[in-house]
Design a protein around this nucleic acid. Sequence first.
DNA 1: CTGAAAGCGCTAACAT
DNA 2: ATGTTAGCGCTTTCAG
Lengths: 342, 342
Amino acid sequence: MNHGGNMVGIEDVAAAAGVSTATVSRAIRGLPRVSPRTRAKILATAKELGYVPSSAASRLASGKTHTIGVLAPYVDRWFFGKAIAGVDRELHGRGYNLSLFNLGGRTQPRERLFSKAMVQKQIDALLLLCMYLHQEEIEDLHAIDMPLVVVGGPVPGLSNVGIDDYQAARTITEHLIELGHRHIALLHGQDDSDLNFSVPRIRVEGFHDAVHQAGLEFDPDTALFGNFTVESGVEAMRRFLELPAPRPTAIVCASDEMALGVMFEARRHGIRIPEELSVVGIDGHEMAAAVGLTTVWQDPTAQARRGTQMLLAELGGDEGAVHPENAEQRLIVRESTAPPRH
Amino acid sequence: MNHGGNMVGIEDVAAAAGVSTATVSRAIRGLPRVSPRTRAKILATAKELGYVPSSAASRLASGKTHTIGVLAPYVDRWFFGKAIAGVDRELHGRGYNLSLFNLGGRTQPRERLFSKAMVQKQIDALLLLCMYLHQEEIEDLHAIDMPLVVVGGPVPGLSNVGIDDYQAARTITEHLIELGHRHIALLHGQDDSDLNFSVPRIRVEGFHDAVHQAGLEFDPDTALFGNFTVESGVEAMRRFLELPAPRPTAIVCASDEMALGVMFEARRHGIRIPEELSVVGIDGHEMAAAVGLTTVWQDPTAQARRGTQMLLAELGGDEGAVHPENAEQRLIVRESTAPPRH
DNA sequence: CTGAAAGCGCTAACAT
DNA sequence: ATGTTAGCGCTTTCAG
């Protein structure tokens, strides 16, 4: 253990092992063209000396940062937390670092983070978590010259891994229809600025199509809005309760978090679920299971891992590794849905 | 916009502006000793040429990475997600990067991440999110030669910013006692390996002291265990229901997430809260508000921001900036608590 | 399979 | 206030 001062460098190892720095470099990075014996010796002395390569020097010389950037609009929300965990799990152990860029929900007044150069010099590849994007940001993204994948909602022109949101919304809505519901309310998920954030819109489309194809009508007055949070679900339920009778017998929420808010507030008002109101969500939040919410399950962690694998493969020279891919989703019927009473 | 190939370097800017690279460097970094005129000119040409400094070169030459490392046991749990968001918010705009090291809950078989050199070469400072630590890891931490702060539970010998967990547990327990409860159950928060993870233990102590000082006795049979997740709260409630009568009239949970699980499962079994059972938690989870859970609120985001500020100040030359600091906490009484019936 | 040497693109004295 | 000049510690041809 040598303290503070002069960290041991590659030259020290080279000298101690009686070889050149070039050989040490190859040996340590597991490159070929090093005899087993020399490699063993080098590795041994390196460990003995407590040598750790300077990533800064390595970056400069090689041009590789061994860092993956993750751009997320939030980190403290279900989908994003799960996804970030997935990226990390995939990176960990492969010697890659995870650099987190959290846009903190700020929408308008955010600098052009993607500006080619700014990001390009810090990371080898970018994983974008689904979010709203301004037109110019999308353009910047297209201009970025490095492996790039988006996890979650689709972004025009970019490869993404995620569920089929349209189908998810249809599935969950049809479940309600099959149970006999004819009057269904919708809690839109609408983010701060959804100019190009397609997930909310796509889910809504799935809902509408399911309703219309069943020959039902959607009463625009029963369209509620929320921003994907539990709180907004609570508020939406308050507004729902003010709707004139006959009220819808079911409500489809664009996310589990909002659905949970709806359920909580319903209970608070003594409305029994599912007897008086059926509630469904989309996502597969752990709490959804705990409260018995019927939903379409998805696994953001797995999606993020998949996206990361693609990025890594592409970096490893496997061209075309990054490509659009649909993720697993599954209807899970629990106790928040039942036939309407009438 | 020049594509791919040769990124413009500091020399290009220097040449174009008719100055030396040293001056360009100073100008761009906002250092003194540059006349306003030259600086303006340099900034202009830099922007015009689309120049962005190579962070790799800068790191190598200066020894500073402008990156803060965040070590977290989880990223997809309430406290951690909130905290990471806080760090990022503080870093963003100050030109610092956030490098996330997620231990993914793996406890035993994890390499010595803190190994001085390994981490030291990649970051300027470290923010540790409260978690269990093995003895040797604590030692490694002490050996690390850079600003270091822990957010959340205290770690022996290290500065931390967080709430007084002992007091939080006492407060919430005394609330129950004041309401008249004499028979109180406890849902311990116990992580995978809590050898040195003091938060659970400290909260339990607060609970016990409150109970004993009120002249009450704690029935060891009513000690339940969970791992801070909602699911574990659900399971704990199932075990609670198997307790022989007379059952406790209240239960204090070491975290809101567990308390939520308890509430959900209680409802499922038709147990009315608070009439038949009072439930309390600790944390201030958003959902706690939605379901009316009485709790001791805290703000992990603010704590993390504070910790980050200390780190940044210390890096800025402000020695002693990093120091232990208690964070705000507050009892929030909602609808999950009431006097016992009897 | 191994070594020599030229950078990678900045920063930091030290001069001027 | 500005320029000169060594490096920072690796990686990478190119030889041998």
